[in-house]
Each structure stands twice: as C-alpha cells, then as structure tokens.
C-alpha cells in the first residue's frame, strides 16, 4: 500500500493554496494532525473497488428541472452590502483590494 505522508514543505504549500496564513506552531500542529488523519483514512485503499461506479448523487436528485424564469428572492440589499468590511452604501458596491501588486 502506498504511503501518503506529509512534509512541512507540503503543509506550507497547501496553506498557500487554501489561502491560510499559518503560524509556525500551527504548521507543526497540522503536520502532526494531518498525518494521523491521513493514516486513518488511507484504510479505504484496502477495499477492492475495481468495477464500482462512484456514488455522486441519488436517483431522487436526478434531473431536477425548474421553469427557465427569474427566481424571486426576498432579500435586503442594504443589509447585504453592509456585511462587507469595505463598501459604498450609496452606490451599493463593495470595495476591494488591488489584484495585481501594490
């Protein structure tokens, strides 16, 4: 059975992908926790699933259609906008940070 092991380098890479700035103590903690969890979940490798199709949804969920019409939703736009850390209440838009560079 293949071994799935984490190294500290991988923890840092994953944190970057997940957009989480981890402290050095968190990195060490997660290295330990994730290796233990991975070891446990790797037991699924024992099962022969050669001819088994993955179950991604149930029959009852198949092809649920609705009218191709506007969905009416009762929401409060002012409340919605005001949840943003930076926003313009008058123009009703969010303020964001620069995407490229500073």
């Amino acid at each position: 059975m293949k071994n799935f092991d984490f190294a500290l380098k991988e923890v840092r890479h994953l944190a970057r992908l997940a957009r989480l700035r981890l402290s050095p103590s968190e990195e060490k903690q997660f290295l330990k926790d994730l290796n233990a969890i991975l070891k446990y979940i790797s037991k699924i490798q024992e099962v022969d699933t050669e001819k088994i199709e993955p179950l991604t949804y149930f029959e009852s969920q198949k092809n649920i259609f609705r009218e191709d019409a506007e969905m009416k939703m009762d929401y409060d736009l002012d409340l919605l906008i005001a949840n943003a850390p930076f926003y313009d209440a008058k123009k009703k838009h969010f303020k964001v940070h620069p995407v490229f560079g500073k």
């Binding site: 979940i41 699924i44 490798q45 099962v47 699933t49 088994i52 199709e53 993955p54 179950l55 991604t56």
Partner: peptide, 15 residues
C-alpha cells in the same frame, strides 16, 4: 490524490 482518495471514497460510499 483525487483518484486515490476522493474518487475511491465515492466508490466506497456506493458500496
């Protein structure tokens, strides 16, 4: 890792 874990887990889910 997707095949080894996610897809495998969905197959076991069916079982």
């Amino acid at each position: 890792y997707y095949e080894a874990f996610y897809k495998k887990a969905q197959k076991i889910r069916r079982l």
